[in-house]
Design a protein around this nucleic acid. Sequence first.
DNA 1: CGACTGCTTGATGTTGCTCAACGTGCGTGG
DNA 2: CCACGCACGTTGAGCAACATCAAGCAGTCG
Lengths: 231, 231
Amino acid sequence: MINKIQHSTNCGDCNCKTSIFKSLHPFELELINQARVQVNYKAGEIIFKQGTPSPHFVCVTSGLAKIYIEGYGKNLILALVKPVDYIFGPGIYVDNRHYYSASAVEDSSACLVDVNIFKKLIRENPDFADEFIKRVSLQSIFNFDQVISLTQKQMHGRIADVIFYLAEKIYCQNPFVMTISRQDLADLSGMSKESAIRILKEFREEGILSLQGNTLEILNIKQLRQISETG
Amino acid sequence: MINKIQHSTNCGDCNCKTSIFKSLHPFELELINQARVQVNYKAGEIIFKQGTPSPHFVCVTSGLAKIYIEGYGKNLILALVKPVDYIFGPGIYVDNRHYYSASAVEDSSACLVDVNIFKKLIRENPDFADEFIKRVSLQSIFNFDQVISLTQKQMHGRIADVIFYLAEKIYCQNPFVMTISRQDLADLSGMSKESAIRILKEFREEGILSLQGNTLEILNIKQLRQISETG
DNA sequence: CGACTGCTTGATGTTGCTCAACGTGCGTGG
DNA sequence: CCACGCACGTTGAGCAACATCAAGCAGTCG
Protein backbone atom coordinates (compact mmCIF):
# COMPACT_ATOMS: atom_id res chain seq x y z
CA MET A 1 0.00 0.00 0.00
CA ILE A 2 2.72 2.45 0.94
CA ASN A 3 4.92 3.09 -2.04
CA LYS A 4 7.36 5.64 -0.81
CA ILE A 5 7.69 8.00 2.06
CA GLN A 6 8.65 11.55 1.46
CA HIS A 7 9.49 14.61 3.47
CA SER A 8 9.68 16.72 0.36
CA THR A 9 7.90 19.88 1.35
CA ASN A 10 7.35 21.81 4.49
CA CYS A 11 3.97 22.58 6.03
CA GLY A 12 4.85 26.25 6.12
CA ASP A 13 5.03 26.32 2.31
CA CYS A 14 2.33 23.75 1.62
CA ASN A 15 -0.97 24.83 0.16
CA CYS A 16 -2.59 22.80 2.93
CA LYS A 17 -1.97 25.96 4.89
CA THR A 18 -5.20 27.31 3.52
CA SER A 19 -8.49 26.48 5.19
CA ILE A 20 -8.42 25.50 8.83
CA PHE A 21 -4.65 25.66 9.09
CA LYS A 22 -4.64 29.36 8.42
CA SER A 23 -5.44 29.98 12.07
CA LEU A 24 -2.23 28.29 13.21
CA HIS A 25 0.92 30.14 14.16
CA PRO A 26 4.15 29.28 12.32
CA PHE A 27 5.52 27.42 15.32
CA GLU A 28 2.34 25.35 15.49
CA LEU A 29 2.61 24.51 11.81
CA GLU A 30 6.17 23.43 12.44
CA LEU A 31 4.87 21.07 15.13
CA ILE A 32 2.60 19.47 12.58
CA ASN A 33 5.36 19.44 10.00
CA GLN A 34 7.55 17.36 12.25
CA ALA A 35 4.81 14.85 13.07
CA ARG A 36 3.91 14.41 9.43
CA VAL A 37 4.38 11.55 7.00
CA GLN A 38 3.62 11.73 3.31
CA VAL A 39 2.33 8.62 1.58
CA ASN A 40 1.42 7.73 -2.01
CA TYR A 41 -1.48 5.50 -2.95
CA LYS A 42 -2.31 3.85 -6.24
CA ALA A 43 -5.89 4.01 -7.51
CA GLY A 44 -8.02 1.49 -5.65
CA GLU A 45 -5.71 1.17 -2.65
CA ILE A 46 -7.23 1.43 0.77
CA ILE A 47 -6.13 4.33 2.96
CA PHE A 48 -7.83 3.01 6.08
CA LYS A 49 -10.58 0.57 6.96
CA GLN A 50 -13.73 1.10 8.96
CA GLY A 51 -13.27 -0.29 12.46
CA THR A 52 -9.51 0.05 12.64
CA PRO A 53 -7.72 2.41 15.05
CA SER A 54 -7.43 5.96 13.90
CA PRO A 55 -4.00 7.28 14.85
CA HIS A 56 -3.81 9.87 12.07
CA PHE A 57 -5.43 12.88 10.68
CA VAL A 58 -5.28 12.55 6.87
CA CYS A 59 -4.80 15.40 4.42
CA VAL A 60 -5.18 14.56 0.74
CA THR A 61 -2.51 16.45 -1.23
CA SER A 62 -3.05 15.05 -4.72
CA GLY A 63 -5.43 12.74 -6.58
CA LEU A 64 -8.91 11.82 -5.39
CA ALA A 65 -10.16 9.65 -2.55
CA LYS A 66 -13.53 8.40 -1.44
CA ILE A 67 -14.81 7.86 2.08
CA TYR A 68 -17.49 5.23 2.40
CA ILE A 69 -19.39 3.17 4.89
CA GLU A 70 -19.34 -0.56 4.38
CA GLY A 71 -22.91 -1.60 4.96
CA TYR A 72 -24.95 -4.70 4.40
CA GLY A 73 -23.60 -6.06 1.15
CA LYS A 74 -22.97 -2.72 -0.45
CA ASN A 75 -21.17 0.53 0.24
CA LEU A 76 -22.41 4.05 0.71
CA ILE A 77 -20.00 6.76 -0.38
CA LEU A 78 -20.25 9.68 2.03
CA ALA A 79 -18.03 12.00 0.08
CA LEU A 80 -15.21 12.34 -2.38
CA VAL A 81 -12.13 14.05 -1.02
CA LYS A 82 -9.89 16.08 -3.29
CA PRO A 83 -6.80 18.18 -2.61
CA VAL A 84 -6.53 20.04 -0.38
CA ASP A 85 -9.04 18.54 1.96
CA TYR A 86 -8.98 16.56 5.18
CA ILE A 87 -10.37 13.32 6.39
CA PHE A 88 -11.16 13.33 10.07
CA GLY A 89 -13.63 10.82 11.29
CA PRO A 90 -15.92 11.34 14.27
CA GLY A 91 -14.13 8.50 16.03
CA ILE A 92 -11.14 10.69 16.86
CA TYR A 93 -12.93 12.12 19.87
CA VAL A 94 -14.82 8.99 20.83
CA ASP A 95 -12.92 5.70 20.73
CA ASN A 96 -10.17 6.42 18.21
CA ARG A 97 -11.69 4.09 15.63
CA HIS A 98 -12.67 4.80 12.07
CA TYR A 99 -16.37 4.80 11.42
CA TYR A 100 -15.91 4.67 7.68
CA SER A 101 -13.32 3.44 5.22
CA ALA A 102 -11.27 5.51 2.80
CA SER A 103 -9.61 4.51 -0.43
CA ALA A 104 -7.91 6.19 -3.37
CA VAL A 105 -10.03 6.64 -6.50
CA GLU A 106 -7.19 8.09 -8.54
CA ASP A 107 -3.48 7.76 -7.80
CA SER A 108 -3.17 9.95 -4.75
CA SER A 109 -0.87 11.19 -2.07
CA ALA A 110 -1.69 12.24 1.46
CA CYS A 111 -0.07 13.60 4.58
CA LEU A 112 -0.68 11.76 7.82
CA VAL A 113 -0.45 13.71 11.06
CA ASP A 114 -0.49 12.25 14.55
CA VAL A 115 -3.96 12.80 15.92
CA ASN A 116 -2.66 13.73 19.37
CA ILE A 117 -0.74 16.69 18.00
CA PHE A 118 -3.95 17.74 16.36
CA LYS A 119 -6.02 17.46 19.51
CA LYS A 120 -3.35 19.29 21.46
CA LEU A 121 -3.51 22.23 19.05
CA ILE A 122 -7.28 22.32 19.34
CA ARG A 123 -6.96 22.66 23.10
CA GLU A 124 -4.34 25.35 22.88
CA ASN A 125 -5.57 27.49 20.01
CA PRO A 126 -9.23 28.57 20.25
CA ASP A 127 -9.24 29.98 16.72
CA PHE A 128 -8.13 26.62 15.42
CA ALA A 129 -10.77 24.89 17.53
CA ASP A 130 -13.46 27.19 16.14
CA GLU A 131 -12.36 26.48 12.59
CA PHE A 132 -12.30 22.78 13.30
CA ILE A 133 -15.81 22.77 14.74
CA LYS A 134 -17.01 24.84 11.82
CA ARG A 135 -15.58 22.32 9.43
CA VAL A 136 -17.18 19.39 11.25
CA SER A 137 -20.45 21.31 11.17
CA LEU A 138 -20.24 21.85 7.43
CA GLN A 139 -19.69 18.15 7.02
CA SER A 140 -22.82 17.46 9.07
CA ILE A 141 -24.88 19.85 7.00
CA PHE A 142 -23.68 18.19 3.84
CA ASN A 143 -24.68 14.83 5.29
CA PHE A 144 -28.16 16.13 6.06
CA ASP A 145 -28.71 17.12 2.45
CA GLN A 146 -27.41 13.75 1.41
CA VAL A 147 -29.73 11.85 3.73
CA ILE A 148 -32.74 13.73 2.44
CA SER A 149 -31.69 13.10 -1.12
CA LEU A 150 -31.15 9.41 -0.45
CA THR A 151 -34.31 8.78 1.52
CA GLN A 152 -36.87 11.06 -0.08
CA LYS A 153 -35.97 11.40 -3.74
CA GLN A 154 -36.33 8.79 -6.39
CA MET A 155 -33.51 7.66 -8.59
CA HIS A 156 -33.65 10.43 -11.19
CA GLY A 157 -33.41 13.10 -8.51
CA ARG A 158 -30.59 11.33 -6.74
CA ILE A 159 -28.53 10.94 -9.89
CA ALA A 160 -29.14 14.60 -10.70
CA ASP A 161 -27.83 15.51 -7.24
CA VAL A 162 -24.72 13.41 -7.71
CA ILE A 163 -24.02 14.92 -11.14
CA PHE A 164 -24.24 18.41 -9.66
CA TYR A 165 -22.00 17.33 -6.81
CA LEU A 166 -19.38 16.10 -9.26
CA ALA A 167 -19.61 19.09 -11.58
CA GLU A 168 -19.70 21.77 -8.88
CA LYS A 169 -17.80 20.39 -5.94
CA ILE A 170 -15.37 17.79 -7.22
CA TYR A 171 -14.29 18.34 -10.82
CA CYS A 172 -15.38 21.99 -10.89
CA GLN A 173 -15.94 22.24 -14.64
CA ASN A 174 -18.78 21.41 -16.92
CA PRO A 175 -17.61 18.94 -19.41
CA PHE A 176 -15.71 16.78 -16.95
CA VAL A 177 -14.03 13.40 -17.04
CA MET A 178 -15.42 11.05 -14.44
CA THR A 179 -12.55 9.28 -12.77
CA ILE A 180 -14.99 7.35 -10.61
CA SER A 181 -16.59 4.11 -11.75
CA ARG A 182 -20.29 3.50 -12.39
CA GLN A 183 -20.31 1.46 -9.22
CA ASP A 184 -19.03 4.50 -7.32
CA LEU A 185 -21.74 6.57 -8.96
CA ALA A 186 -24.27 4.03 -7.71
CA ASP A 187 -22.72 3.99 -4.22
CA LEU A 188 -22.94 7.78 -4.12
CA SER A 189 -26.61 7.75 -5.01
CA GLY A 190 -27.65 4.66 -3.05
CA MET A 191 -28.87 2.50 -5.90
CA SER A 192 -27.71 -0.46 -7.94
CA LYS A 193 -25.09 0.00 -10.64
CA GLU A 194 -27.61 -1.08 -13.29
CA SER A 195 -30.13 1.54 -12.22
CA ALA A 196 -27.50 4.30 -12.26
CA ILE A 197 -26.47 3.36 -15.81
CA ARG A 198 -30.09 3.28 -16.91
CA ILE A 199 -30.81 6.76 -15.60
CA LEU A 200 -27.71 8.16 -17.28
CA LYS A 201 -28.89 6.60 -20.52
CA GLU A 202 -32.31 8.21 -20.14
CA PHE A 203 -30.77 11.61 -19.43
CA ARG A 204 -28.62 11.26 -22.52
CA GLU A 205 -31.58 10.26 -24.69
CA GLU A 206 -33.53 13.25 -23.44
CA GLY A 207 -30.67 15.57 -24.30
CA ILE A 208 -30.08 16.61 -20.71
CA LEU A 209 -26.47 15.57 -20.87
CA SER A 210 -23.95 14.02 -23.20
CA LEU A 211 -21.85 11.10 -22.14
CA GLN A 212 -19.02 9.63 -24.18
CA GLY A 213 -17.12 7.08 -22.20
CA ASN A 214 -16.33 8.90 -19.00
CA THR A 215 -16.65 12.43 -20.31
CA LEU A 216 -19.88 13.96 -19.10
CA GLU A 217 -21.30 17.31 -20.10
CA ILE A 218 -24.46 18.78 -18.65
CA LEU A 219 -26.37 20.22 -21.60
CA ASN A 220 -29.58 21.35 -19.93
CA ILE A 221 -28.69 22.56 -16.45
CA LYS A 222 -32.14 24.02 -15.87
CA GLN A 223 -33.95 20.79 -16.54
CA LEU A 224 -31.45 18.79 -14.49
CA ARG A 225 -31.91 21.22 -11.62
CA GLN A 226 -35.63 20.74 -11.83
CA ILE A 227 -35.27 16.97 -11.76
CA SER A 228 -33.13 17.36 -8.67
CA GLU A 229 -35.72 19.52 -6.96
CA THR A 230 -38.87 17.65 -7.84
CA GLY A 231 -37.35 14.45 -6.49
CA MET B 1 -45.97 28.71 21.69
CA ILE B 2 -44.38 30.08 24.82
CA ASN B 3 -46.64 29.48 27.80
CA LYS B 4 -44.74 30.81 30.73
CA ILE B 5 -41.23 31.82 31.51
CA GLN B 6 -39.60 30.63 34.67
CA HIS B 7 -36.37 31.16 36.54
CA SER B 8 -37.20 28.45 39.01
CA THR B 9 -33.97 26.59 39.48
CA ASN B 10 -30.33 27.38 39.27
CA CYS B 11 -27.87 25.76 36.87
CA GLY B 12 -25.62 24.86 39.76
CA ASP B 13 -28.32 22.59 41.22
CA CYS B 14 -29.81 21.44 37.94
CA ASN B 15 -29.29 17.88 36.78
CA CYS B 16 -28.27 19.37 33.44
CA LYS B 17 -24.94 19.72 35.19
CA THR B 18 -24.22 16.14 34.22
CA SER B 19 -22.77 15.34 30.81
CA ILE B 20 -20.85 18.05 29.03
CA PHE B 21 -21.52 20.66 31.70
CA LYS B 22 -19.53 18.71 34.26
CA SER B 23 -16.35 20.19 32.83
CA LEU B 24 -17.47 23.72 33.65
CA HIS B 25 -16.33 25.67 36.73
CA PRO B 26 -19.01 27.01 39.07
CA PHE B 27 -18.46 30.55 37.87
CA GLU B 28 -18.91 29.42 34.29
CA LEU B 29 -22.14 27.66 35.18
CA GLU B 30 -23.29 30.86 36.79
CA LEU B 31 -22.60 32.66 33.52
CA ILE B 32 -24.92 30.22 31.76
CA ASN B 33 -27.45 30.48 34.56
CA GLN B 34 -27.77 34.19 34.03
CA ALA B 35 -28.16 33.92 30.26
CA ARG B 36 -30.79 31.24 30.58
CA VAL B 37 -34.52 31.24 29.93
CA GLN B 38 -36.81 28.37 30.76
CA VAL B 39 -39.78 27.73 28.46
CA ASN B 40 -42.67 25.26 28.47
CA TYR B 41 -44.08 23.69 25.34
CA LYS B 42 -47.30 21.76 24.84
CA ALA B 43 -47.21 18.53 22.85
CA GLY B 44 -47.05 19.32 19.16
CA GLU B 45 -45.69 22.81 19.57
CA ILE B 46 -42.73 23.84 17.52
CA ILE B 47 -39.53 24.73 19.35
CA PHE B 48 -37.78 26.10 16.30
CA LYS B 49 -38.10 25.83 12.53
CA GLN B 50 -35.56 24.78 9.98
CA GLY B 51 -34.10 27.83 8.24
CA THR B 52 -34.70 30.31 11.06
CA PRO B 53 -31.87 32.03 12.99
CA SER B 54 -30.42 30.01 15.80
CA PRO B 55 -29.72 32.33 18.72
CA HIS B 56 -30.01 29.66 21.42
CA PHE B 57 -28.60 26.46 22.63
CA VAL B 58 -31.57 24.33 23.80
CA CYS B 59 -31.52 21.95 26.74
CA VAL B 60 -34.60 19.76 27.18
CA THR B 61 -35.38 19.52 30.90
CA SER B 62 -38.67 17.56 30.81
CA GLY B 63 -40.91 15.81 28.31
CA LEU B 64 -39.81 14.60 24.90
CA ALA B 65 -38.92 16.42 21.71
CA LYS B 66 -38.11 15.40 18.16
CA ILE B 67 -35.67 16.95 15.74
CA TYR B 68 -36.53 16.46 12.11
CA ILE B 69 -35.66 17.59 8.64
CA GLU B 70 -38.51 18.86 6.52
CA GLY B 71 -37.90 17.29 3.16
CA TYR B 72 -39.85 16.88 -0.02
CA GLY B 73 -43.39 16.31 1.17
CA LYS B 74 -42.47 14.34 4.25
CA ASN B 75 -40.25 14.63 7.30
CA LEU B 76 -37.29 12.64 8.47
CA ILE B 77 -36.85 12.44 12.22
CA LEU B 78 -33.16 12.56 13.05
CA ALA B 79 -33.55 11.85 16.74
CA LEU B 80 -35.77 12.07 19.77
CA VAL B 81 -34.44 14.24 22.55
CA LYS B 82 -35.28 13.49 26.16
CA PRO B 83 -34.16 15.09 29.41
CA VAL B 84 -31.44 15.88 30.04
CA ASP B 85 -30.15 16.31 26.55
CA TYR B 86 -29.20 19.16 24.28
CA ILE B 87 -30.14 20.33 20.86
CA PHE B 88 -27.31 22.09 19.07
CA GLY B 89 -27.50 22.23 15.34
CA PRO B 90 -24.50 22.37 13.04
CA GLY B 91 -25.57 25.82 11.95
CA ILE B 92 -24.27 27.42 15.14
CA TYR B 93 -20.74 27.51 13.77
CA VAL B 94 -21.66 28.16 10.16
CA ASP B 95 -24.37 30.72 9.48
CA ASN B 96 -26.38 30.69 12.70
CA ARG B 97 -29.36 29.05 11.03
CA HIS B 98 -31.16 25.88 11.98
CA TYR B 99 -30.71 23.01 9.58
CA TYR B 100 -33.54 21.04 11.10
CA SER B 101 -36.75 21.74 12.98
CA ALA B 102 -37.59 20.74 16.54
CA SER B 103 -40.94 20.24 18.17
CA ALA B 104 -42.34 18.86 21.41
CA VAL B 105 -43.74 15.32 21.24
CA GLU B 106 -44.93 15.32 24.83
CA ASP B 107 -45.56 18.39 26.98
CA SER B 108 -42.02 19.59 27.55
CA SER B 109 -39.87 22.27 29.05
CA ALA B 110 -36.49 23.49 27.96
CA CYS B 111 -33.78 25.95 28.90
CA LEU B 112 -32.55 28.31 26.23
CA VAL B 113 -29.02 29.65 26.53
CA ASP B 114 -27.51 32.39 24.41
CA VAL B 115 -25.32 30.73 21.85
CA ASN B 116 -22.59 33.35 22.19
CA ILE B 117 -22.08 32.52 25.85
CA PHE B 118 -21.76 28.95 24.79
CA LYS B 119 -19.20 29.64 22.11
CA LYS B 120 -17.28 31.86 24.49
CA LEU B 121 -17.00 29.02 27.02
CA ILE B 122 -15.79 26.67 24.31
CA ARG B 123 -12.99 29.08 23.49
CA GLU B 124 -12.00 29.56 27.11
CA ASN B 125 -12.34 26.06 28.52
CA PRO B 126 -10.53 23.34 26.52
CA ASP B 127 -12.11 20.55 28.58
CA PHE B 128 -15.53 21.89 27.72
CA ALA B 129 -14.51 22.16 24.06
CA ASP B 130 -13.30 18.56 24.07
CA GLU B 131 -16.55 17.38 25.58
CA PHE B 132 -18.52 19.39 23.07
CA ILE B 133 -16.62 17.97 20.11
CA LYS B 134 -17.00 14.50 21.53
CA ARG B 135 -20.73 15.00 21.74
CA VAL B 136 -20.99 16.30 18.20
CA SER B 137 -18.96 13.29 17.11
CA LEU B 138 -21.29 10.87 18.85
CA GLN B 139 -24.17 12.51 17.06
CA SER B 140 -22.40 12.01 13.73
CA ILE B 141 -21.76 8.36 14.46
CA PHE B 142 -25.40 7.88 15.33
CA ASN B 143 -26.36 9.51 12.05
CA PHE B 144 -24.07 7.16 10.14
CA ASP B 145 -25.82 4.13 11.60
CA GLN B 146 -29.12 5.74 10.75
CA VAL B 147 -28.17 6.43 7.15
CA ILE B 148 -27.06 2.84 6.64
CA SER B 149 -30.26 1.59 8.20
CA LEU B 150 -32.37 3.89 6.03
CA THR B 151 -30.60 3.27 2.74
CA GLN B 152 -29.59 -0.38 2.92
CA LYS B 153 -32.17 -2.19 5.01
CA GLN B 154 -35.68 -3.00 4.04
CA MET B 155 -38.69 -2.04 6.05
CA HIS B 156 -38.64 -4.89 8.56
CA GLY B 157 -35.05 -4.17 9.51
CA ARG B 158 -35.68 -0.45 9.76
CA ILE B 159 -38.68 -0.89 12.03
CA ALA B 160 -36.67 -3.30 14.18
CA ASP B 161 -33.95 -0.65 14.50
CA VAL B 162 -36.46 1.98 15.53
CA ILE B 163 -38.05 -0.31 18.12
CA PHE B 164 -34.65 -0.97 19.66
CA TYR B 165 -33.91 2.74 19.61
CA LEU B 166 -37.12 3.47 21.49
CA ALA B 167 -36.71 0.64 23.99
CA GLU B 168 -33.01 1.13 24.69
CA LYS B 169 -32.32 4.80 24.17
CA ILE B 170 -35.54 6.69 24.67
CA TYR B 171 -38.01 4.96 26.99
CA CYS B 172 -35.35 2.68 28.54
CA GLN B 173 -37.70 -0.13 29.57
CA ASN B 174 -39.16 -3.10 27.81
CA PRO B 175 -42.85 -2.84 27.95
CA PHE B 176 -42.99 0.86 27.11
CA VAL B 177 -45.73 3.29 26.20
CA MET B 178 -45.09 4.96 22.88
CA THR B 179 -45.79 8.64 23.22
CA ILE B 180 -44.94 9.16 19.58
CA SER B 181 -47.50 8.73 16.81
CA ARG B 182 -47.45 6.14 14.05
CA GLN B 183 -46.56 8.93 11.69
CA ASP B 184 -43.51 9.70 13.84
CA LEU B 185 -42.61 6.03 13.77
CA ALA B 186 -42.78 6.16 9.98
CA ASP B 187 -40.74 9.37 9.85
CA LEU B 188 -38.09 7.73 12.04
CA SER B 189 -37.82 4.74 9.72
CA GLY B 190 -38.23 6.52 6.41
CA MET B 191 -41.37 4.85 5.17
CA SER B 192 -45.08 5.54 4.80
CA LYS B 193 -47.32 5.44 7.85
CA GLU B 194 -49.29 2.55 6.37
CA SER B 195 -46.19 0.46 5.84
CA ALA B 196 -45.02 1.06 9.41
CA ILE B 197 -48.38 -0.06 10.77
CA ARG B 198 -48.36 -3.14 8.56
CA ILE B 199 -44.91 -4.24 9.76
CA LEU B 200 -45.95 -3.79 13.38
CA LYS B 201 -48.97 -5.95 12.69
CA GLU B 202 -46.79 -8.66 11.14
CA PHE B 203 -44.41 -8.60 14.11
CA ARG B 204 -47.37 -8.93 16.44
CA GLU B 205 -48.82 -11.84 14.47
CA GLU B 206 -45.46 -13.61 14.55
CA GLY B 207 -45.25 -13.20 18.31
CA ILE B 208 -42.16 -10.98 18.13
CA LEU B 209 -43.89 -8.25 20.08
CA SER B 210 -47.19 -7.39 21.68
CA LEU B 211 -48.90 -4.11 20.98
CA GLN B 212 -52.01 -2.89 22.73
CA GLY B 213 -52.79 0.65 21.82
CA ASN B 214 -49.53 2.41 22.42
CA THR B 215 -48.03 -0.08 24.85
CA LEU B 216 -45.37 -2.10 23.12
CA GLU B 217 -43.47 -5.05 24.55
CA ILE B 218 -40.69 -6.86 22.76
CA LEU B 219 -41.33 -10.57 23.31
CA ASN B 220 -38.61 -12.13 21.20
CA ILE B 221 -35.58 -9.87 21.41
CA LYS B 222 -33.33 -12.39 19.73
CA GLN B 223 -35.49 -12.67 16.64
CA LEU B 224 -36.00 -8.93 16.43
CA ARG B 225 -32.24 -8.47 16.67
CA GLN B 226 -31.78 -10.86 13.82
CA ILE B 227 -34.30 -9.02 11.69
CA SER B 228 -32.42 -5.83 12.40
CA GLU B 229 -29.12 -7.39 11.35
CA THR B 230 -30.22 -9.23 8.26
CA GLY B 231 -31.77 -6.04 6.89
C1' DC C 1 -74.12 14.97 17.87
C1' DG C 2 -71.18 16.07 14.01
C1' DA C 3 -66.68 17.05 12.49
C1' DC C 4 -62.23 15.79 12.93
C1' DT C 5 -58.00 13.39 13.78
C1' DG C 6 -55.35 9.36 14.14
C1' DC C 7 -55.29 4.39 13.30
C1' DT C 8 -56.03 0.29 10.44
C1' DT C 9 -56.73 -2.61 6.50
C1' DG C 10 -57.15 -4.04 1.66
C1' DA C 11 -56.51 -3.30 -3.32
C1' DT C 12 -53.73 -1.52 -6.86
C1' DG C 13 -49.91 0.49 -9.33
C1' DT C 14 -45.16 1.89 -9.58
C1' DT C 15 -40.39 1.77 -8.48
C1' DG C 16 -36.21 -0.15 -8.43
C1' DC C 17 -33.56 -4.53 -7.50
C1' DT C 18 -31.87 -8.91 -9.10
C1' DC C 19 -30.44 -11.98 -12.33
C1' DA C 20 -28.75 -13.26 -16.58
C1' DA C 21 -26.65 -12.45 -20.84
C1' DC C 22 -23.52 -10.06 -23.65
C1' DG C 23 -19.94 -6.67 -25.17
C1' DT C 24 -15.48 -4.45 -24.42
C1' DG C 25 -10.99 -3.27 -23.01
C1' DC C 26 -6.99 -4.72 -20.41
C1' DG C 27 -3.50 -7.36 -18.45
C1' DT C 28 -1.36 -11.90 -18.05
C1' DG C 29 0.69 -16.01 -19.17
C1' DG C 30 1.68 -19.38 -22.58
C1' DC D 1 1.81 -12.62 -30.57
C1' DC D 2 -2.55 -14.62 -29.40
C1' DA D 3 -5.78 -16.76 -26.16
C1' DC D 4 -7.70 -16.40 -22.05
C1' DG D 5 -9.60 -14.63 -17.81
C1' DC D 6 -11.29 -10.80 -15.50
C1' DA D 7 -13.30 -6.45 -14.35
C1' DC D 8 -16.29 -3.10 -15.88
C1' DG D 9 -20.11 -1.42 -18.57
C1' DT D 10 -24.66 -2.16 -20.80
C1' DT D 11 -29.22 -3.94 -21.72
C1' DG D 12 -33.56 -6.58 -21.02
C1' DA D 13 -37.00 -9.34 -18.40
C1' DG D 14 -39.20 -10.58 -14.26
C1' DC D 15 -40.29 -9.92 -9.62
C1' DA D 16 -40.36 -8.20 -4.84
C1' DA D 17 -40.79 -4.21 -2.13
C1' DC D 18 -43.06 -0.27 -1.15
C1' DA D 19 -46.13 3.83 -1.84
C1' DT D 20 -50.54 5.44 -2.88
C1' DC D 21 -55.36 5.46 -2.81
C1' DA D 22 -59.65 4.48 -0.80
C1' DA D 23 -62.59 3.09 2.76
C1' DG D 24 -63.89 2.11 7.39
C1' DC D 25 -63.36 2.54 12.45
C1' DA D 26 -62.58 4.39 17.12
C1' DG D 27 -61.79 8.09 20.06
C1' DT D 28 -62.17 13.10 21.05
C1' DC D 29 -63.22 17.77 21.06
C1' DG D 30 -66.19 21.55 20.43
